[in-house]
Amino acid sequence: MNDLSQAKTFDEFMEGIWRQNPVFVMVLGMCPVLAVSVSAVNALSMGLATMFVLVCSCGLVSLLRKLVPKEVRIATYIVIIATFVTVVDYVIQAVSLEIYDALGAFIQLIVVNCIILGRAEAHASKHPPIAAMVNALGMSIGFVIGLFALGAVREVLGAGTLFGVSLFGPNFQPWVVMVLPPGGFIVLGAWLLLFSALKRRQEARLAAPGGGHGA
C-alpha cells in the first residue's frame, strides 16, 4: 500500500475536486453550503474550517486505524472529529469574531457534516495516513470550490461586492433574495445544472466514436 504511484496519488487528490465533488456531484453537506454561502468570505472561511477538520481527522483516523476495534470505530471517529471542530471553533474566535458570528452554529455543526464522517469511514480507515490526507485534501478543496462558487454568486448579486469590494459602484441594486435562504437553493440549482450539463457533454465526447478507448 505504501508504494502508491504518483499518478494514483494525483487521482486520489482529484477525485474530490472533480469526479466526486462533494457539493456538485455527491450533494453532501448541504446544510452549511446553503446556510453560510451568503458571502464569499463566509463561504471561504467555512470551507477552510471544514478542510482543517477533514484533513486532520482523516490523518488521525488513519493513524489509529489498526488500533481501533470495529465495534467502537464510529464513536472514535466522532470523538476525533469533534475534537478538531472544537479546535477550529477556538481558532476562528481568536482570528476574527465577525466571521465567528457570521458562521454561527455552523462551525460546531461541522461535526455532523457527512462528508467528514463519510471520508473517515470510507477512506481514511482503510488507507495509510499520507494517502488518506491527500484524499481528504482533495475532497475539502472540492468542498471549498463548491462553497466559494455559491458564495461568490450570492455576494455579487446580493450585495454587489466580492470579498467586500464593491463591483458596481454605489448605485447597485442588491437582489435581496440572494442573501435569503431561497437564493441559496436557486444558485445551487443553477450550479448543479451547469455541472451536470458539463459532465454530460464530457461523457458524450468520451462515448463518441474515436473519443475514448472503448465504451
Binding site: 489509529l64 488500533l67 481501533v68 476495534p69 467502537v72 472514535t76 470523538v79 476525533i80
Partner: peptide, 8 residues
C-alpha cells in the same frame, strides 16, 4: 474497547 476509547 474501553482502553481504546480512553486513549482516544
Amino acid at each position: 474497547l474501553v482502553k481504546t476509547l480512553g486513549l482516544v
